[in-house]
Design a protein around this nucleic acid. Structure first.
Length: 397
DNA sequence: TCTGGGGTCCTAGGACCC
DNA sequence: TCTGGGGTCCTAGGACCC
C-alpha cells in the first residue's frame, strides 16, 4: 500500500503577504528583498515581476534593470511572515496531525489514512488549499504523490494556485519528460556535468548506469539521482527535527578594512547568536567564524570548546581569536563576517543552567549578569580555557 | 553583472584510539 | 619491529536548498 504524501507550497509567499496587506500594491510588480542600488538579492517577487524575468536569488541590481519604474521594493518583514506561517501550519495540522514544516512557506503532510475521511486525494488537496485561503487569504500550490520527491515536483507542476495528483502508476510518465535538473540536489555545479553527457530530461538520465552517475556526481549524490530518476524516494516525515546550528552574519554595504568595525559586527553577531541559543535552551561547543573577501572568497574557521557555552563574550572572544590568528587575512577588505554556534550539549553545571534562567527573565542579553555567570564558570574551569576557546582536543594543537 | 541570510549535508584528510 | 583496519572526532571547504 503506497503512502500518500502531500506537499504544500505558498505562492510567492513574502510578496503575496505584502500585496494582501497593501491593496494599493496589488497588480503591480513587487520585490521583497534588498533595496535597488544596494548589495543583495531578490528574496521573493510577485508574479507581475516574474513576467519581466525576475526571480528569487537574482541580484537586485539586475532585477532593477529589468523592472519598470512603478515597481514596489520592500524590505522583508520576516517576523510578520513567520506569524502568518504559524497560522497556516496550525490550520494544516487540523487536516493531518502528521505534518513536517520544511521552511517558512512549505510543508509535507502524510495523508495516507485520510481518504476514508475526506475522499480521494484531489479532495484532500482542495481541502488544504481552501482552508489556507480561508484562514489567511493566500493561495498555495499543492502536490500529492507516493513520496516526498513526487509530491514536491507535483506542487511545482502548476503554479500558482495549482493542484496536481500523481498516482504511483503515473510516476514514470510524469517524470520522464521533465528537465533533469528538477531532481533534488541537482544544482549549478552538478547539472552541467551531466548536461555534457547529453542528458536533457529525467528520462535521459534514467539511461545512465548507477556506476556512471556515481562517477560524475559522487557516490552519495549519484545513487540518489539514480533512484530519483525512477521515482524512488523517501516517503517518511520528520516532524520534530532539531536545529543543528545557530548563526548570524552580515554583508557590509561596502567592503570593510577597519578592525574596529569588524569587532563591532562580531560583537553584534555574538550577542544575537548567544541570545537565540539561550532562548531555545542550548549550549554549544563549536564556534565557527565565517569571513568573505573579494571576490566572494569565503573561509571558515572553527574551534571546539571543552566547556559548552551560550555566552556572548565567549563567542566573541573565540571568534576574534580565530580571526586574529590568520596573519594573511590582516588588512584584506572584508565583504561579509559572521559567527555560528553548533555542537549542542546538555548543561552540566549549575552556572550553565543559570544562563537559561536569565534568558527566561527576558533581560537584555547585554546585561552584565550573564557575564558574571560566565565568570563563575571561568573560575571553575580556568579563565584561559574559555578565553582561548579552550579547544584543544589534541595535544600540540 | 553580481551574487542575502539562514540553514543542511557531504567529502576528505589528519589525529587518535583500540 | 612492523603492521592493519575500523571508528570517532576535528577541521575546512563546497554544494545545495528556501
Amino acid at each position: 500500500m503506497p503512502r500518500l504524501i502531500l506537499h504544500v507550497d505558498l505562492d510567492a509567499f513574502f510578496a503575496a503577504i505584502e500585496q494582501r496587506d497593501h491593496p494599493e500594491w496589488r497588480g503591480r510588480p513587487l520585490v521583497v528583498g534588498a533595496q535597488p542600488g544596494g548589495r543583495g538579492v531578490v528574496a521573493t517577487c510577485s508574479y507581475e515581476a516574474r513576467r519581466f524575468g525576475v526571480h528569487s536569488a537574482m541580484p537586485i541590481t539586475q532585477a532593477a534593470r529589468r523592472l519598470p519604474p512603478e515597481t514596489v521594493y520592500v524590505r522583508p518583514r520576516v517576523a510578520h511572515y513567520a506569524q502568518v506561517s504559524a497560522q497556516i501550519m496550525a490550520v494544516l495540522a487540523t487536516i493531518s496531525p502528521r505534518i513536517e514544516r520544511v521552511s517558512i512557506d512549505e510543508a509535507y503532510l502524510d495523508v495516507s489514512g485520510l481518504t476514508a475521511l475526506f475522499g480521494p486525494p484531489r479532495v484532500i488537496g482542495e481541502q488544504v488549499k481552501g482552508s489556507i485561503r480561508q484562514a489567511v487569504g493566500l493561495t498555495a500550490s499543492v502536490g500529492i504523490g507516493p513520496n516526498r520527491l513526487i509530491a514536491k515536483l507535483a506542487s511545482d507542476y502548476h503554479k500558482p494556485d495549482g493542484l496536481t495528483v500523481v498516482l504511483e502508476e503515473q510516476v514514470a510518465d510524469f517524470l520522464a519528460p521533465m528537465p533533469f535538473n528538477v531532481l533534488r540536489g541537482m544544482g549549478v555545479k552538478t547539472a552541467p556535468r551531466l548536461a555534457r553527457l547529453g542528458v536533457k530530461t529525467v528520462g535521459d538520465l534514467r539511461e545512465l548506469s548507477l556506476e556512471t552517475l556515481r562517477q560524475h556526481c559522487g557516490a552519495r549524490a549519484g545513487t540518489q539521482f539514480y533512484y530519483q530518476a525512477r521515482g524512488i524516494a523517501d516517503d517518511r516525515l520528520y516532524p520534530d527535527r532539531e536545529r543543528l546550528s545557530i548563526s548570524k552574519e552580515r554583508t557590509f554595504p561596502e567592503d570593510v578594512t577597519d578592525p574596529k568595525q569588524l569587532a563591532e559586527t562580531l560583537h553584534w553577531a555574538a550577542r544575537e547568536v548567544a541570545w537565540t541559543a539561550r532562548q531555545t535552551g542550548r549550549l554549544g561547543r563549536v564556534v565557527t567564524l565565517k569571513v568573505c573577501f573579494y571576490p566572494f572568497e569565503t573561509h571558515t574557521r572553527s574551534r571546539s570548546l571543552r566547556v559548552p557555552t551560550a555566552d556572548e563574550q565567549d563567542l566573541y572572544q573565540v571568534a576574534w581569536s580565530l580571526l586574529a590568528s590568520e596573519a594573511t587575512w590582516t588588512g584584506r577588505p572584508v565583504r561579509l563576517i559572521g559567527l555560528g554556534l553548533s555542537g549542542w550539549s546538555q548543561p552540566t553545571t549549575g552556572q550553565q543552567l543559570d544562563l537559561f534562567e536569565t534568558a527566561e527573565t527576558g533581560r537584555n542579553p547585554a546585561d552584565n549578569g550573564l557575564t558574571e555567570t560566565l565568570d563563575a564558570i571561568r573560575h571553575r574551569f580556568g579563565a584561559e580555557a574559555i578565553q582561548r576557546g579552550i579547544g584543544l582536543h589534541h595535544q600540540g594543537n
